[in-house]
């Protein structure tokens, strides 16, 4: 009796052990597959040769990173800062400014909308919610040309300010996640405050916002990250105004037929440089991200 129990136990343990080993193997293989492109990108960014079909550099160099900020032409002559074909530093700065500004404005707008829809009850609420849903289903860049013409009237075409405004305006439709979060905050808090004579304005600032740290961080994070990856709209909006391009447009241009020969490894270096801070930021903030997407089911 005891004997069989023992063998059963060891059998069960052995099975679990085997399962775990299998999982370790699967995970290792998957991690290799998942990290391979990233590692390849990093390796290429240190390569002195411009080959795109090799893996390890034939010669290691830091040159590609230097060329992002101090480029030279095909003959090896240095190019002055104002003549840089790919002013990477300027683009990073542009993207950073746009990302920060649009994160601040968008977060504010999203919080305002979601608070109104979640905590306040008014006549046209349902209709507006439906409108928001419907508008969100039109492909975004369908409206690029029109947006450009509108910005032209305001004198903001091809400007960073214009870009921030467009991003912030568009962010308004992304209220669902934070509305979901506000829905989870007990309404009794509002009621109690109302009895104490607080206005809805005060409730918003004093009671709700301090409780919403995870969703504020989530919203700010997602709105901060999106300008770093947006190529389509910026390339249409900024046109030839290279000084105002963002990093995504610039990097994409390094890979076109005209430039890829000399700039492929520089592209890799540029990609690695922006990926590092964003990755770190994302890893630090991931719990907020999860909390956001799951609508507060997982607390940040």
């Amino acid at each position: 009796m005891t004997n069989t129990q023992n063998t059963m136990k060891t059998g069960y343990a052995a099975k679990r052990q085997a399962a775990n080993i299998a999982i370790y193997i699967i995970l290792t293989v998957m991690v290799i597959v998942w990290l391979f492109p990233i590692v390849w990108l990093i390796l290429r960014s240190f390569s002195a040769d411009g080959a795109y079909n090799a893996i390890f550099p034939s010669n290691w160099t830091f040159d590609n990173y230097i060329r992002l900020f101090n480029d030279y032409d095909a003959a090896g002559n240095p190019i002055s800062q104002e003549d840089m074909p790919f002013p990477y530093g300027t683009w990073i700065l542009n993207t950073f400014i746009v990302a920060v500004c649009s994160a601040v404005v968008s977060t504010l707008i999203i919080l305002m909308i979601s608070y109104a829809f979640s905590r306040l009850r008014f006549k046209s609420r349902k209709a507006l919610l439906n409108c928001g849903l419907i508008l969100g289903m039109f492909p975004g860049f369908m409206s690029m040309a029109a947006t450009y013409s509108i910005m032209e009237i305001f004198g903001l075409k091809q400007s960073l300010v214009g870009l921030v405004i467009v991003y912030s305006a568009g962010a308004g439709l992304g209220y669902q996640v934070s509305k979901g979060f506000f829905d989870t905050i007990p309404r009794s808090l509002d009621e109690a405050a109302k009895i104490d004579g607080a206005t809805r304005n005060q409730i918003f600032w004093v009671i709700i916002l301090p409780l919403s740290k995870p969703i504020i961080v989530y919203t700010a994070l997602t709105t901060f990250l999106s300008p770093w990856a947006d190529y389509i709209f910026v390339s249409y909006f900024m046109k030839a105004n290279k000084e105002n391009w963002t990093v995504a447009v610039g990097l994409y241009n390094m890979l076109d037929n005209e430039h890829i020969g000399r700039y492929f490894t520089v592209f890799c270096a540029g990609a690695v440089l922006i990926a590092i801070p964003i990755t770190i930021l994302f890893i630090i903030m991931q719990r907020f991200y999860v909390a956001g997407v799951t609508g507060g089911a997982v607390k940040g």
Partner: peptide, 8 residues
């Protein structure tokens, strides 16, 4: 694209 391919 051609240019990258020929160079490579």
């Amino acid at each position: 694209g051609d240019n990258a391919y020929v160079q490579q």
